[in-house]
Amino acid sequence: MPERRVVTGRSQNPRERFAEELRRLRTERGESLRQLGEQLGWDASLFGKMESGETMGGPEVVEALDTHYGLPGLLIAMWEIAMGDVTRFKEQYQRYMGYEAKAVSLWQYSVGAPPGLLQTPAYAREILAAGGIRGVELDQQVEARMSRRKLLEGPSSPAFRVILSEAVLRTQLSDPNDWRGQLEHLAEAAERPKIKLQIVPFSAGPHSLTNTDVMFLRMPNGTTMAYPENDLRGELIEESSRVEQLQLRYDSMRDLALPLAESRKFITRVLEEVPCEPST
């Protein structure tokens, strides 16, 4: 009987597993990204983004890699499985958006960026572009994100409690004026009667949600669901026991946050540190 191949320790996520395999194949050959790009006729940066999971590439480039490594059909099959996983993620996100529009209350913790509902157009554009989105798609996604902000407007808007890590207030945009605009928007949002905004300072130390963004949605029927996410993906959780586990983590983290008034003062102090620069 042939020896069984051990895969323990490798990612079980199809997209991450595909990226791992691309890195492994190239490094075992001793090729640099530049050499790979020269041999296959694509820019080396594309292969770097594929190996980091930032992009999946297209069928043509995956087929070329399949041939290059002498693995007829294997990489194409892995790519198709991973793309199916991406499709499921998009469908799940669309379901989340539908629930968000109907929620009677929302509460969120953000690790490194303001929640989309509180982002300015300039902030949304820069953070989306940092994720590799360009051109018309970038314009469309910025517009879509800005349209979501209307959810917090008007008498029927849901109550929204948002807790931000101090890192959100320290990770600046490239343009100081755009960054000032984002901080001013957060300060203004903190004054709205239906928005409760708090800050978890660095001095609070590690906590139960140190590396996890999460949004909770309370629905009209009384049920609650959660949507934890990172830069690459999110997961809509409807199972009550899993939602409760995340809620306990959220409550534990909230105990470390500054009170509402102190949080507003904290944002104002950070805002005062931003230099005023003339617009060009």
Rank of each mutant, 00 (worst) to 15 (best):
R10V: 00
G53R: 05
S208G: 05
G84F: 13
P278R: 09
A226M: 09
R269V: 08
P176Y: 07
E3P: 01
R10M: 01
M50E: 04
K102M: 14
P2Q: 11
L118V: 09
G73K: 01
A167G: 02
E184T: 10
N177F: 02
E60A: 15
L271R: 08
P121L: 10
P72K: 07
G205Q: 10
G181L: 00
P158W: 04
R24G: 00
L248A: 14
R149H: 10
D213K: 03
M146K: 02
H185L: 14
F47C: 09
E188I: 11
P14A: 12
G222F: 03
E273A: 15
S174M: 06
E229R: 15
E63R: 15
A226F: 05
Y93S: 07
N211V: 11
G73T: 01
D213C: 14
G57E: 03
L169T: 02
K196R: 04
I133G: 01
R24H: 01
V270Y: 07
G131Q: 14
L65Q: 03
S156R: 14
E16P: 05
S174V: 08
Y93K: 10
S240L: 09
R148A: 04
N230Q: 11
Y99T: 06
R4H: 02
Y99A: 13
L236V: 04
G222Y: 03
V62K: 03
S252P: 04
V86C: 07
M83Y: 07
V104Q: 13
A167Y: 02
S157D: 10
T87M: 06
K49A: 13
V168G: 01
D231E: 10
T210Y: 12
A187E: 12
Q12S: 15
F202K: 03
L118C: 09
G9K: 03
L248S: 12
G131E: 13
Q12M: 13
A189S: 14
R5V: 13
D43F: 06
T55F: 12
C276N: 13
E188R: 15
S241R: 14
R26K: 08
V104P: 04
L75N: 00
L106G: 09
L36C: 10
S240C: 06
I127N: 00
Y93W: 13
L246M: 12
G53I: 05
Y227M: 13
L164Q: 04
S110V: 09
Q182T: 01
T87A: 13
Q35S: 13
M215C: 09
S52I: 05
M253L: 15
Q172I: 00
E31P: 02
N177M: 13
G112I: 11
S165W: 05
R23L: 00
G116T: 07
L258G: 03
G84A: 14
V142H: 11
R23G: 00
R149L: 11
F18T: 00
A44P: 06
G222C: 05
Q119S: 01
D43Y: 10
Y93V: 11
